[in-house]
Design a protein around this nucleic acid. Sequence first.
DNA 1: ACCAAATCTCAGAGCAACCTCAGAGCGCGG
DNA 2: CCGCGCTCTGAGGTTGCTCTGAGATTTGGT
Lengths: 222, 222
Amino acid sequence: MDLDARRVLLVEDDKRLSELLVRLLTAESYEVVSVFDGQAGLHHGLTGRWDALVIDRTLPALEGVELVRRLRSRGITTPMMLLTARGTTEDRVEGLDSGAEDYVVKPFDSDELLARLRALLRRHTDTSPMIDLGGRRLDVASRRVLSPGAEPVELSAQECALLRVIAANPGRVRSREELHRRVFQNADSPNAVDTYVYYLRRKLGHGMIRTVRGLGYRLGPS
Amino acid sequence: MDLDARRVLLVEDDKRLSELLVRLLTAESYEVVSVFDGQAGLHHGLTGRWDALVIDRTLPALEGVELVRRLRSRGITTPMMLLTARGTTEDRVEGLDSGAEDYVVKPFDSDELLARLRALLRRHTDTSPMIDLGGRRLDVASRRVLSPGAEPVELSAQECALLRVIAANPGRVRSREELHRRVFQNADSPNAVDTYVYYLRRKLGHGMIRTVRGLGYRLGPS
DNA sequence: ACCAAATCTCAGAGCAACCTCAGAGCGCGG
DNA sequence: CCGCGCTCTGAGGTTGCTCTGAGATTTGGT
């Protein structure tokens, strides 16, 4: 399997159309995962790592527009494309206002869809938010830490959120209380911060996050 | 009007909530100026003198998160607090990543908001950015001594506290008794001061703290 | 030079802060 | 229903900080 492949999440309940799209995208050497309802789309969108989402507008369990809205409201910045049978101006406006980058009306031309997808990916990678970690970079959108000449490291949602806060101001010490309040608001145990620092260190090595005893953590080493 | 009052800029478009907050803050003897959209917030934030900003997240003219971001990008370091109806982890992370110090979810408890505001102001004013050591600098917040062209030296809590007192007035001699009283309150042995001077010299070299026999210690060669 | 007082040096006990990790709970997909 | 990954909990084990005390070294006075 191509490690460099673009990962596309397809949310489409029409099995025939879904299969067609999977074949089309796979032939263009995208790596496609296909789910069939809005809830599954929400879960994968929140937890998986994606370069783009292709979402049908009419879906069981959770509407396409609503799915886009919820993903956006949870901070997901991955580019999303809506597919729809309806094509009125109002539909388009509503679809795009929900946060989708593009809007394709069925029946669509395969080449056009592929072109739009390429445009989406191109636009996005230009503006992909990267946080500097001193030598390495945190790609918040795909929740990966990229090191020159090494495999990317994938982070869970909480790991990423914690690292984001710590990395926001390199050198500044963040107290456990602050980190807990910002990232683990609905956790009871203040130990959650410690545990996730431990997870991050296990994945990224011990030089990345340094402890300042009695105060908190900061981004190392400098 | 109290000249010592803390000046707070409130940016909140909901007139009822705004008035409530103004009353709440004024009762705590803050000096409050209230504006009702993001553009006005931007203007006042850039031109006025403030001890803290309290900003609603959903605002006409300019979003709260974007307002924070723009103020930060123009070099405004005043502590800022975001108010929001939404409360997911991703929201919080986004809000705080924009540069806000704290994030309060509506509906909020008045006392909690006041407590957080106090914490904000305390933190900000306590953060004495850097103490001059004559060539080097002591960063109290991260407990490090920074030297031009050298690795930072990390200090323990007591080491930092001791150096802070000695460095407060360069050249002035501090007696063991004073240092012991201010830093080693609950230590029985008066030797603790000597020991920590020894630790500091071991980390920072012997030129930094000088002994004045019979009197105490003072900073630097001078 | 010699002595006594002041100061320095450092090993180690005690302890709180911190790290580590197994596992329970949960939501989801197979 | 089971397995899987993510999240959070709680219980040790470990580390590093703090302070003590005692011997070594320096200082200033005679």
